[in-house]
Design a protein around this nucleic acid. Structure first.
Length: 273
DNA sequence: CCTTGAACCTGCGGGC
DNA sequence: TGCCCGCAGGTTCAAG
């Protein structure tokens, strides 16, 4: 379900209800995820307090007392939901945390592509999950020159390049199509044939697309809920994603769907070159 | 090194 | 109504 904006919205929605709370109890109902939840999961969390929530790429990080960090990834279908009080465990719930004000944080993931683990906070930078990750798209580092440098000597298409988490993190299948539409670049264009000026336009489009989605509360995903159950406001519609056959909102061209790297890709053949 | 494609899962909607 | 197929927001690994 989640690309960078959804994780960021989740982080912001959970921060006021979770930060400063102590984890009183941990229940694991279904350990099978992308990697199984380790037997020591609960023991490493219990009695620690949640100091802050942050995000790296599409990972949500809960920084705990005692130099531990809870790492959560939602995969395709994961949800992390806070509620003021416990309710009976539902289908596909993998684990939940009971906090010291009797509220509960529940992780649910039907497709089980997600992940949850506790690591030493000092390992965050060099951990195998993180060390290969590319630039954060909302950081200073991410600009046209960075993209040009990373594309040097490569032959891929631009959309697969933007979705490569070792280049830039957080851009998934929806926002890759949306950002390329905003930048007026054809998703099949080879990265070897992009000028610095165009790289700069692409970097700006990625940043704008993600920021607008965050501002809209992650609402461009139609079944997205933040951590406290709000659905967003649907202020933003996709320009091209899942809109094959409809008209491009910019030039009235006819939006097309193709498959790139096994992923559905949408673009306007009239204004994207 | 790079690129590509498949595998990992369950649920849903469309077509018949 | 029910069955079958294709498709879905991500990551990782093997093969070429």
């Amino acid at each position: 379900m989640p690309e960078l904006p959804e994780i960021e919205v989740l982080r912001r929605s959970l921060t006021p209800v979770c930060s400063g709370r102590t984890i009183r109890e941990v229940e694991v109902f279904e350990p099978r995820l992308r990697e199984p939840i380790e037997p020591g999961f609960g023991d490493r969390l219990r009695d620690r307090s949640i100091e802050t929530l942050s995000r790296r790429a599409k990972y949500l990080l809960a920084h705990l007392s005692g130099e531990r960090t809870l790492v959560v990834h939602l995969g395709m279908s994961g949800r992390l939901e806070w509620s003021a009080e416990a309710s009976p465990p539902g289908k596909h719930q993998h684990w939940r945390l009971q906090l010291d004000d009797a509220s509960v944080l529940t992780y649910r993931d039907p497709r089980r592509f997600g992940l949850a683990e506790v690591i030493a906070s000092g390992d965050l930078v060099c951990h195998r999950r993180f060390h290969h990750l590319g630039a954060e798209p909302l950081s200073e580092e991410f600009d046209g020159a960075y993209l040009r440098r990373r594309a040097h000597g490569r032959r891929r298409g631009i959309k697969e390049f933007l979705m490569d988490q070792t280049v830039v993190v957080g851009v998934g299948n929806i926002y890759a199509s949306e950002a390329l539409h905003r930048a007026r670049v054809h998703p099949r264009r080879k990265v070897s044939r992009v000028s610095l000026a165009t790289w700069t336009r692409i970097a700006e489009a990625v940043r704008e697309t993600l920021n607008r989605a965050i501002d809209a509360g992650g609402s461009t995903l139609n079944d997205f809920r933040n951590g406290v159950g709000d659905s967003g406001y649907f202020q933003i519609e996709h320009a091209v994603y899942d809109r094959a056959g409809q008209l491009c909102p910019r030039c009235r061209g006819r939006i097309r769907k193709i498959v790139l790297g096994n992923r559905s890709t949408y673009y306007c053949p009239r204004c994207q070159r």
